[in-house]
Design a protein around this nucleic acid. Structure first.
Length: 475
RNA sequence: GGCGGUAUAGCCAAGUGGUAAGGCAGAGGACUGCAAAUCCUUUACCCCCAGUUCGAAUCUGGGUGCCGCCUCCA
């Protein structure tokens, strides 16, 4: 089975067919860099990172673009409050974004365009929209003319009347229709601005994505993703702008993907509710792997609930995965040898699981089901380790390859600390393990337990096996 | 009011016509000096009502609960 994606344009699962065979153009809405990003923002970053990795794993040449919004009202207000320029604010929080995103194992995009570095492209996009008769200038502002765009509302499945009922028009506004939205905003005193054919001003929110996606990916792109709340108005507006600008008759985007909301203790996250959690804070409390595990444990379109319990459960799940990998590594060092282990049968079982994994990922990247398969692999490895004194080289090669492959997509197992560390501390740990082994030999269990407890207090866990004692770091 | 999502074991969560994956937690057992890890055993009338069907958690209709969007919040 090949990849099927749920397309919000049609509200159906559709077979994924890229515009150019073998290539995928993928635009993902990035953060407005006025503050640390929060744990709700982290969801699309993580889940679409996994989709991107899966596409690459399947052999596609993916161009992944994720913007930084570095000019808008929030940026301006925050910069004013901090007493710095908008540019300084952007610089700071782009760096913070990268720190948190890296910690969460999110691959860097191929291109990370910033709105303020694409003002000429934005202006020319607006000019084309005006030239095509879908926008108008009004006192230094430029608005998209909703009435000229019959398709408006096709992504969010709303008709114009219903949308108008919810819209409001402020007194003194310069729009013709309440739903018309700004492409360009005339300069206000003390705010950053750029020269344009309509006087000094700055871009509206939606236009940057249209201008930048077309610059880097073309007028017709394969995949565009973001949170459900962006479906309206942001993506609806983007689509209208892009298609009005290109005037090619081709859709702006072939597959629209939206992730479900993340709730905090069953409530929407909001500063007013006092339940606002930044990714930075979450990373202080929970291991990055557990946060990833949590995000991938449900389907990306379902809502998920961020609670201490769910994160602890995720941590325990990660622990099981990591134990398997470290048990495997330890056995590879101590139990490799002659064996009548049925390698061919084992390979066949792994292949079957591999097929199940692919099937899950191809089904609208169902990571929850895929993780179920990963645990089946873990079980297969664990029972094989249990049932065989010694195992052939191939067992270890095959098992390690399987875990590595799945983890290269999901990123929930991570590095083996004990394996990768060869510093003074690990040498000391080895010494203590040696001392404990001698204490145990002479039945000095008091000393033995003392060593184990003191290491435990430092986050080092010892496990005794018939082949000796292994150690690992707690998450 | 308009649009949409969702309801599966103590908790998290797949499955979407043929009789319930996986994880966490719990209980009992094996192993261990004791642990830890691992393994074995064990826990579901799939929100309610009606209908379609040989057969429904899965489809249809109705109801109820929860959630989101329609306010430049992922």
């Amino acid at each position: 089975m090949s990849l099927v994606l749920f397309n919000d344009l049609t509200r159906k699962k559709e077979p994924f067919t890229p515009i150019t065979p073998g290539k995928v153009s993928f635009y993902s809405c990035g953060p407005t860099v006025y503050d640390f990003f929060h744990i709700g923002n982290a969801r699309p970053f993580i889940v679409f990172d996994v989709l991107r990795r899966w596409l690459e794993h399947e052999g596609y040449d993916v161009t992944f673009v994720q913007n930084f919004t570095d000019i808008d009202d929030k940026m301006i207000h925050r910069a004013k409050r901090e007493g710095i320029t908008v540019a300084e604010l952007a610089e700071r929080f782009i760096a913070e974004y990268n720190k948190d995103a890296d910690a969460l194992g999110i691959k860097r995009p191929d291109v990370s365009p910033r709105a303020t570095e694409h003002i000429p492209e934005i202006i020319s996009t607006i000019e084309r929209i005006i030239a095509n008769g879908h926008a108008y200038e009004s006192n230094g502002d430029v608005y998209f003319d909703i009435q000229s765009w019959p398709k408006y509302g096709s992504l969010c499945k709303q008709n114009l009347e219903d949308l108008e009922a919810g819209a409001r028009i402020e007194p003194g506004e310069k729009k013709r229709d309440p739903l018309d939205f700004a492409l360009w905003k005339a300069e206000k005193p003390g705010e950053p601005s750029w020269p344009s054919p309509w006087g000094k001003g700055r871009p509206g929110w939606h236009i940057e994505c249209s201008a930048m996606s077309s610059k880097y990916l073309g007028d017709n792109i394969d995949i565009h993703s973001g949170g459900v709340d962006l479906m309206f108005p942001h993506h609806e507006n983007e689509a209208a702008q892009s298609e009005a600008a290109s005037n090619s008759g081709k859709p702006f985007v072939n597959y629209w993907l939206h992730n479900g909301f993340l709730l905090i203790d069953s409530e929407k996250m909001a500063k007013s509710l006092g339940n606002f959690v930044t990714a930075r804070d979450a990373l202080k409390k929970y291991p990055p792997l557990a946060i990833r595990f949590f995000m991938l444990s449900a389907h990306y379109r379902s809502p998920i609930n961020f609670t201490p319990e769910s994160l602890e459960q995720a941590s325990a799940g990660v622990e099981r995965l990591r134990n398997c990998r470290s048990d495997l590594d330890f056995a590879a060092k101590t139990r490799k040898g002659e064996s009548n282990f049925d390698v061919d049968g084992y390979r066949k079982e792994l292949d079957e699981l591999h097929a199940k994994f692919s099937e899950a990922m191809n089904d609208d990247f169902n990571t929850a089901a895929a993780m179920g398969v990963l645990f089946d692999v873990v079980y297969l490895i664990n029972t094989s380790l249990k049932e065989n004194e010694t195992l052939p080289e191939e067992f270890f090669t095959l098992s390690k390859k399987a875990l590595d492959e799945y983890d290269s997509i999901l990123g929930v197992i991570g590095e083996d600390f004990a394996e990768s560390e060869h510093d003074e501390e690990s040498a000391e740990i080895e010494r203590l393990i040696q001392e404990r082994a001698e204490a145990r030999k002479s039945k000095n269990f008091a000393r033995s337990d003392e060593i184990r407890d003191s290491l435990k207090a430092r986050g080092i866990v010892l496990e005794d096996t018939p082949q000796g004692t292994k150690w690992k770091r707690e998450l």
